[in-house]
Amino acid sequence: MTGTLTLARLEVLRVLRNKRYLLFTIGLPVVLYLMISRQGSGSTAYHVQFAAYYMVAMASIGAFSGALTGNAQRISQERKDGWIRQLRITALPASGYVTAKIIASMVTSVPSIVVVLALGRFYGDVHLAPWKWIAIALAIWLGSMTFASLAVAIGYRFMPDTVQPITMFVYLGMSVLGGLWFALGGTMQKIGQVLPTYQITRIGTDVISQGTIPMGRVAIILAWLAGFIVLAAWSVRSTVEKI
């Protein structure tokens, strides 16, 4: 386990050294929040004040885009470069690489969640009970694991130049249809509500408006997580001789 943890620690360092990553996971949500959260003041979305909805949405988008796009690209590139191959001929356990990637992804999604929630509190004037802050942060944080698993599935299966458009397509679909750019209504909402991104945001807004954790929504996210884990395991296994 020490080997896997050392690898995870190094992965975190690499992510923090990558300015582009920080720009997308922290910079983009922060700038959007500063620009847009006050424009909707007075209105509501998903039964909460707009600044609160937008805080949850921006924290989700930072965490999920970091887990998905950064990881998928890196994994694919490292497979192509032979780094995964190199690790396989060391004493690192076979699962070590993927485990380290997911741990690192979970660690590096923390700053974007914390920064956006703090912005919501101090800039968006969102006031909540302490347990609600924790519940929202945890929902987004654990929800981002879904996309770390998807990133493993994509990164192992496709070459880097194919990964780029695939993750962009998934990113746009999941974020727009999941209601992260704007709150959904009508038909869009009926389509969007099957997506994990939508459900992560709605757990946040439900916690704020109802004060309970909606277990139905948690179940949908867990189903996606299970599906992506199966997909990831299949990707890893079916490329085992092609590494």
């Binding site: 190094l10 360092l13 690499r14 050294r17 990558n18 470069d81 032979g82 780094w83 191959r85 190199q86």
Partner: peptide, 10 residues
């Protein structure tokens, strides 16, 4: 290995 890549940015 001939084809063994290395970790980047470290």
């Amino acid at each position: 290995l001939q084809s063994g890549g290395l970790m980047t940015t470290v």
